[in-house]
Simulated scan of single mutants.
Amino acid sequence: MTDWLDILKEQTAAGDKMTTTVTDMLADPAILEEQVKTLFDALEEQADFVEKLRVALEKFGYDFPVIQAAERLEERYGDLAASVAEKLKALRVSRED
């Protein structure tokens, strides 16, 4: 049987680490457009996984605080992806100048 709470805990820890990693990467002036694109794709994939996790938690009737934690994690990945998309846009604009 799948332990959805353990998966949520693991994903939350990964989200915490990813927040720091993404912030550091985006602050690096030498970051390449391809790296940013790869990072964006990875964050989108992770957000999709967390969305599926949230749906599973809802399906199996977990308490509201557990669902809220999954929703916050889903939002975190969405916010990170948005930050990366902004960086990608900025890199593309500066390349065109």
Rank of each mutant, 00 (worst) to 15 (best):
M1K: 04
M1W: 08
M1L: 09
D3I: 03
D3W: 02
D3Q: 01
D3N: 13
W4P: 01
L5C: 14
L5Y: 12
D6A: 10
I7Q: 12
I7K: 13
K9C: 09
Q11D: 15
A14V: 01
A14H: 06
A14R: 09
A14C: 03
D16V: 03
D16Q: 10
D16H: 05
K17T: 14
K17V: 12
M18S: 13
T20Q: 05
V22C: 01
T23W: 02
M25A: 14
M25W: 02
L26S: 11
A27Y: 05
A27V: 07
P29G: 09
P29N: 13
I31H: 06
E33Y: 10
E33C: 14
E34A: 14
E34N: 07
K37I: 14
K37W: 14
K37D: 09
F40D: 10
L43W: 03
E44M: 08
E44R: 09
E45N: 01
Q46W: 06
D48R: 13
F49R: 09
E51G: 12
E51M: 11
E51W: 10
L53Y: 05
V55G: 00
V55C: 03
K59C: 04
F60N: 13
F60L: 08
P65T: 01
I67G: 04
A70W: 00
E74M: 03
E74Q: 06
E75I: 07
E75D: 08
R76G: 02
R76A: 06
Y77W: 03
G78C: 06
D79L: 08
D79A: 07
A81S: 14
A81K: 12
A82C: 00
S83E: 14
S83D: 10
S83H: 08
V84P: 09
E86I: 14
L88D: 04
A90I: 11
A90H: 13
R92M: 13
R92W: 03
S94N: 05
R95F: 04
R95S: 13
R95C: 06
E96K: 13
D97A: 12
